[in-house]
Design a protein around this nucleic acid. Structure first.
Lengths: 192, 192
DNA sequence: TAAACAACCTAACGTTCGTTAGCAAATTTT
DNA sequence: AAAATTTGCTAACGAACGTTAGGTTGTTTA
């Protein structure tokens, strides 16, 4: 399945790798151009600004995460099953796009307004999905945690470290990682 | 307990806040000077370079984390007790220095060599402490996890998110946070 | 009281930055 | 074959960057 990327997509992909490795601010347009084998000014035939690249990566990934958890959610299922599904979906997006995920997770603060504010709104809505599952689990006694906000942040941060070490050819594949993490984090919610 | 900071310490503290908020690369010496109410050039009466500030913060925090877990470790205790103690110590350092912790966790990649390499060595040695506790717990059947490296990274990343939301006057104090996190993460290791 | 030091200043250095203007060649579309 | 689009170039802009040189002032030490 060879996919031919448009020049704009190539730029975005190369930029993503650099933003991840050195950070948005420490990556210059000349660095990016050098990596692409062209001049810095040439990039502006395809994009409007350096920040536009960051915007596209951040909001594309936000979309991916939303679509993934929406697709697998079944409001009729138990809280455990719903949370397990959401965790698995989240891990799948993370492992399928490690570089873009890293940018999504750590470089969004370099977005200017109104994108910065919009991003934070989206992120909170995403976390809300997890909060509501956990709240439902608490109310019927399935989970025992002092605070659902606290639990969600711990779970998500436990997941969001994956991009730093995940390698597609490592000893665990994405499904195994997702399963192990889900078991481990779900068990943590069922305190005795 | 009023503590008078030397000018150098004031610079370091102010820089830490800026590095945390905007990142190391996006913080200029003129920003820092402006925050201090002086000219950028004046800062160089007290420090050698911008990176020196980052180095001091990163390695000071590395020391704090090491001292904290060394002080509470009892190799004779059970793996659960040891891990609980380490988690509590780690959380205490994090909550007592949220800004410096954020810099320590996310800005170290802007260190130049040989500091960059030295930092990674220290970090790995720190994680090794946790790995060994968990390995001990696995070998006597106290913990059931597929991979201790995996478990350590999940635990530490679950803890290292604290700095983003912890407020000293929030509804949970540092001890409660540490206790809740320890319970939640320890339970996750004792899979049935 | 003289010497040493701490703290800050103005001015400027050489470099790098994101970006624009204007143009040329190749490719695709009509 | 003409027109439009894509992709790239050189040259340069104004601004911002980390840092140095050299000097001034006030405070502390000998």
């Amino acid at each position: 399945m060879e996919v031919t990327l448009s020049r704009k997509e190539q730029i975005e992909k190369t930029a993503t790798a650099l933003f991840r490795k050195r950070g948005f601010s420490a990556t210059s347009m000349r660095d990016l151009a050098n990596e692409l084998g062209i001049e810095a000014a040439s990039i502006y035939s395809h994009i409007r600004s350096k920040e536009e690249i960051l915007q596209r990566v951040c909001f594309r990934m936000a979309n991916e995460f939303f679509e993934a958890i929406d697709k697998v959610d079944d409001p009729e299922a138990t809280a455990s099953a719903r949370l397990q599904a959401a965790i698995t979906a989240h891990v799948q997006v993370l492992t399928k796009n490690t570089e873009a995920s890293a940018v999504f997770l750590y470089e969004w603060r370099h977005l200017s307004e109104p994108y910065h504010a919009e991003f934070l709104t989206l992120r909170d809505r995403y976390e809300k999905h997890f909060r509501e599952i956990i709240k439902a689990g608490i109310s019927i006694g399935e989970f025992k945690v002092p605070d659902e906000k606290f639990a969600v942040l711990t779970i998500l941060s436990g997941l969001n470290w994956i991009h730093t070490w995940y390698k597609p050819d490592g000893k665990m594949n994405a499904e195994e990682i997702a399963a192990n993490l889900a078991t481990m984090l779900l068990n943590g919610l069922k305190q005795t």
